[in-house]
Design a protein around this nucleic acid. Structure first.
Lengths: 241, 241
DNA sequence: AGTTAATGTGTTTCTTGTACATATTTAAAA
DNA sequence: TTTTAAATATGTACAAGAAACACATTAACT
């Protein structure tokens, strides 16, 4: 780091400034959603001719005057109108040649969005939800980024109550299990699932029942208030059970 | 990401290039070591007057012509002479004002180095090993970076055989337990520890004994060859037990 | 030869995870 | 109105893993 400072100092007058400070810094958002029993991700059609017909994540350059961790919130705000979404940084990708137009490194974040509850104002026409397990090739290295965020999410939901950001405030245990299964990509035993969830002690029984379902209604639950963990108002990990 | 491309394309001729591409991109290495039963980290005295007397991590700007993930290997090579060290990316820090000389984001890596086995060629005079649990204030946001790498390491060693990068090829179970305790910062039950390690099936009994120890010698073990996971020759996670 | 301090192994208990069965409730069909 | 189908709701038995704990063995040192 000391060496860097020397470089930077020298760079102010020398052309090495351009040499060392011409790396683009971006963030890319893997925006996960859940709708109609499908686990989805929000993608945009790439407008680069190199990636014609392929989809890419939503991203943008980090502005010179914003904290890096603010950038993904801004992207989500600009593209979907959402604020107060759950966001987690996952990994930074910086291979040469990962962007055809120049040297750009990007930091990947995933976010969890309740598609139904929030009314998304999708600002671009080519912005659509895609089922996560049906996505093929993507622009840039975005398929790798998506996979790494999915892996992180799968680990996260096993121990931390973040999955509720994808559900409405009131939900049945069946809805919750469906969502777990969609994210993890496997089927769970209903009885053992309920036991595990009960043990975690994340939920409050609302003493209400589902309505307008074509079968026996299930009980409704909500996440305990002190565990709500949406967007910037994150508690420290240790407080979350 | 599409928006970024427009910016970048325009930037080639406009001054917005300087506006958007004047963020420094660096890596910082949290180089962990183990020696004399102490868990240590390699630090250098900061040469910035803002941080006079404080220590900082070893870092450098990412070069325009190198993959980002190559940068921490280069830093380690240049500063310590080591190659083939274990490295893992942890998190990227990009707050405004985290570097007094200008806008610099940094990606943190931790690495695991066997202090005794490799002969370190410490290139700078003010480069020294410091006991991890005795480190106070640091330069920049390096204390936060160190803590986040330590947290990641603590989780990692519970499930993955990476800790052996800190030990000599041959070691006793007592040495291994001492190291776990030093990293985790707690004491473990010897019998349960040995049972857990046996269950992991990571070790090979060498049928050799410790020598020159002032007590009853313990058996020596080594890590199973196919689990060796040093430096760039990393296997995929799934192969590691 | 006896003492000391470490190594090495085993048992019990509790918790957690997994496999699996049956009764209950409601909507829909007969 | 009765029957049927399909989902909810709950419980039990077994296996695996974690935690608490005790004793015998070995080698260096006195």
């Amino acid at each position: 780091m000391d060496k860097m400072v020397q470089l930077k100092t020298a760079a102010v007058e020398k052309s090495s400034h351009l040499e060392y400070f011409n790396i683009g810094v971006s963030v890319d958002c893997v925006i996960f959603g859940y709708d109609e029993k499908k686990f989805k991700v929000l993608l945009i059609k790439s407008d680069l001719k190199e990636f014609e017909g392929l989809h890419s994540l939503l991203g943008d350059l980090v502005r010179p005057d914003e904290n890096m961790e603010d950038a993904p919130y801004r992207v989500l705000q600009e593209r979907t109108g959402l604020h107060d979404v759950y966001l987690e940084q996952v990994q930074t990708f910086g291979n040469l040649g990962r962007h055809p137009s120049g040297r750009v490194i990007t930091t990947a974040y995933y976010s969890l969005v309740n598609i139904k509850s929030h009314k998304l104002q999708l600002t671009a026409n080519d912005l659509h939800w895609h089922q996560v397990n049906k996505i093929g090739q993507m622009a840039f290295d975005h398929k790798v980024i998506l996979e790494s965020c999915l892996m992180r999410l799968r680990e996260k939901i096993l121990e931390h109550p973040v999955i509720f950001n994808l559900l409405p405030d009131k939900f049945s245990l069946r809805e919750l299990q469906d969502l777990y299964e969609a994210i993890l990509g496997l089927e769970l035993d209903r009885r053992n699932f309920r036991k595990r969830i009960t043990l975690k002690n994340w939920l409050v029984d609302l003493n209400e029942m589902e309505e307008d379902v074509p079968h026996r209604p299930g009980k409704l639950y909500k996440l305990k208030t002190q565990l709500k963990n949406t967007g910037r108002t994150q508690k420290k990990e240790k407080l979350i059970v």
